[in-house]
Amino acid sequence: MSLTLHRPAILQQLRTETRPYHDALEQNEFNRALQADSITAQATHRFLAKLYGFLVPYEAHLRQHGLGPEWQPELRQRAHLIPADLGVGATALPLCPTMPPLETPAQLLGAMYVLEGSTLGGQVLARQLGKAGIEARTYFSGHGEQTGPLWKSFCQLLGEAATEDNQAEIVASAAATFQTLHAWIEKP
């Protein structure tokens, strides 16, 4: 007997409708340097500092929404890993002053799609940084062996939470999250 995994329709919609924003974000200086095998510790540190500045306010919204324990919100908060990777105190890192709207559950789910999905790509980045001899990669390691299962759990929960009434808001929030994060990363 073969097991067929159910892939919620919202995932395909998110993937399709946010692809241009995802692709644009991936063209940042850090990713270009990785692709060109010219990554430096300085570029890695700058990118991590920018991620931290975005994650701190995002994670504050994540805590405020009071997601149920099935979402494992405490495991999905990873900003605290970045100052250790950088060897600096958290107060030394700037915070993103403008976040996408994260007031409704649907808006939070759209943002979560972006940031939870980044844990999968982060593992690839961690391997590339390791090959380049760059130590600052704890954040990129995601949840280690639990990264895949946590992503699958998120996708299942997202599929259950998505309705005809909130799907457009989820997708719009994911797009806004990609765009806001991209603008923040590109800001000097």
Rank of each mutant, 00 (worst) to 15 (best):
N28C: 10
G142N: 14
R19C: 03
R76W: 10
R32N: 10
Q156W: 15
I170Y: 14
L67R: 00
T40P: 05
S38K: 06
Q27P: 05
G159C: 10
E164Y: 01
A176L: 04
N28I: 01
N28R: 03
G130R: 01
Q167L: 10
Q35A: 15
E59C: 03
L5I: 07
T40N: 05
R78F: 12
R76T: 14
E164F: 01
E145C: 05
T177N: 06
G89N: 10
L115S: 09
E59P: 07
S153L: 15
L93Q: 04
A106K: 01
L109C: 05
F178T: 11
A49M: 07
L129W: 02
P97L: 07
G142E: 13
D23Q: 06
L158H: 14
R15L: 14
Q72F: 12
E70L: 15
Q156I: 09
A111Y: 12
V56A: 13
P57E: 12
F54H: 07
I39K: 00
L181G: 03
K152M: 10
Q27C: 07
T104E: 08
G66N: 08
G68N: 13
R15K: 13
K187E: 14
Q107I: 05
E74I: 06
A41I: 01
P57A: 08
H22E: 02
I134F: 01
S2L: 11
T40R: 01
R7N: 03
P101F: 09
L48G: 01
A43R: 00
P69G: 08
G87P: 11
A183G: 04
Q13M: 05
V56L: 13
N31F: 05
N28H: 07
T177A: 05
L102M: 06
L95M: 08
S153A: 12
Q128E: 07
A168G: 02
F47L: 00
K187L: 08
M99Y: 11
T44D: 05
Q13E: 14
G144L: 04
P83H: 05
P57I: 13
A60P: 06
T163Y: 02
A9K: 09
A92R: 02
Y139D: 06
L150A: 05
H61V: 06
L125S: 04
T98R: 01
